[in-house]
C-alpha cells in the first residue's frame, strides 16, 4: 500500500497536487487543537478588523478571529464528510455485495428499497428532517440522516459488480472449497469492489460537504457547531458583504473550494490507477 502511494505521488501529477491541497486543509484543521480561543466564544478580539497581524484573516463582526474560527469549521466539516462517507460506504458495501451474491428474492427486496432511496428527493427530505427535529438537530443526527440517503447509488454499482463476480468460476471454486458466504464476500469479492469504493468515497465526501454547506447557509442545521456552512450563515446574518467585511465570506469559501479540488483530484487519479487496463500493464496479464 505504501509503495502504491509512493508510485502515485511520483508519477501522477493530479495525485500529488491533490495530496498537497488536502494536506494543507488537514494542517489548518489540526491547528484548531492549539487555538487560543474556544470556537463559540464571541467578542474575544476586536470586531471587523481586516486581515492584518496578528489577525491574519481578519476578525468577524462578532469579535471572533476568522483564522482560528476557520480551523474549527473546517475540522467539523471534514469530520462530517468522512463520517457520512464511512457510514454510507458500509451500508452500500453490505447491501450491494449481499444483493449481488444472493440474487433472487433477497436481491429483489434489497433493490426495491434501494430504488426507493434513489428516487426520493434529498433536499426537501433533509429540510423536513430539520423542521421535525428543530432543537434536537445535531451534527451527528444530520450525518446519520445523510448517510442513510447517500448509499443507494453506490450500492447499485457494487451490486452489478458483485453479480458478475457471482458468475465467475472462482466463486464456484470458493463454494466447493467450503467457504462460507461471509468469507466469500469479504475475502473474494471485496477486493474487486474496494477500488470502486475508494473513488466513490471521495465523491461522497464532496457531495456531503456540499450539501451540508448548502443546508447550513440556509440555517437548516445546528447553527451552534461551527462548520464552513455555519460560518457563512453567520456572515450572512451580519450582512458581511454589505458591511464590507468580505474576509468573513471569502476565506471560508476559498478553503471549501480547496477541499473540493483536492478530493476531486484524488478521485480522478485513483480512478486512473485502479483502471483495469492501467493495472494490467503494471502486473502483466
Amino acid at each position: 500500500m505504501s509503495r502504491v502511494l509512493r508510485d502515485l505521488f511520483r508519477y501522477n501529477r493530479e495525485f500529488a497536487i491533490g495530496i498537497v491541497l488536502l494536506a494543507f486543509v488537514l494542517l489548518i484543521s489540526a491547528a484548531s487543537f492549539v487555538s487560543p480561543y474556544p470556537p463559540n466564544d464571541s467578542f474575544v478580539v476586536p470586531p471587523d478588523l481586516p486581515p492584518s497581524w496578528p489577525y491574519i484573516l481578519g476578525t468577524t463582526s462578532r469579535g471572533q478571529d476568522v483564522f482560528w474560527l476557520l480551523t474549527f469549521a473546517i475540522r467539523n466539516t471534514l469530520l462530517f464528510g468522512f463520517t457520512v462517507a464511512l457510514l454510507s460506504r458500509i451500508l452500500s458495501l453490505v447491501i450491494g455485495l449481499v444483493a449481488g451474491y444472493a440474487g433472487g428474492l433477497v436481491d429483489r427486496v434489497l433493490m426495491s428499497i434501494n430504488d426507493t432511496f434513489i428516487v426520493i428527493p434529498l433536499f426537501p427530505i433533509l429540510v423536513l428532517f430539520y423542521f421535525v427535529m428543530r432543537d434536537r438537530m445535531s451534527w451527528a443526527l444530520l450525518a446519520l440522516a445523510m448517510s442513510c440517503l447517500g448509499w443507494a447509488y453506490d450500492a447499485r454499482l457494487i451490486r452489478s459488480v458483485a453479480m458478475s463476480l457471482r458468475t465467475r468460476e472462482f466463486t464456484e471454486t470458493s463454494i466447493f472449497s467450503g467457504m462460507s458466504m461471509r468469507q466469500i464476500l469479504v475475502e473474494e469479492h471485496l477486493p474487486y469492489v474496494l477500488p470502486i469504493v475508494f473513488s466513490t468515497t471521495m465523491n461522497n465526501i464532496n457531495w456531503s460537504i456540499g450539501l451540508e454547506v448548502t443546508l447550513s447557509v440556509l440555517g437548516f442545521t445546528d447553527i451552534n457547531t461551527p462548520t464552513i456552512g455555519v460560518l457563512i450563515y453567520w456572515a450572512n446574518q451580519h450582512t458581511a458583504l454589505v458591511a464590507g467585511v468580505w474576509w468573513w465570506i471569502l476565506f471560508p469559501v476559498m478553503l471549501v473550494i480547496i477541499t473540493f479540488v483536492g478530493l476531486f483530484l484524488l478521485a480522478v487519479s485513483m480512478n486512473e490507477y485502479i483502471d483495469p487496463r492501467s493495472r494490467l500493464s503494471r502486473v502483466g496479464g
Binding site: 508519477y11 492501467s278 500493464s281 503494471r282
Partner: peptide, 9 residues
Amino acid sequence: QTSSFGVER
C-alpha cells in the same frame, strides 16, 4: 513496451 508508474516491461 510499456512504462506505467515506474514499471518498465
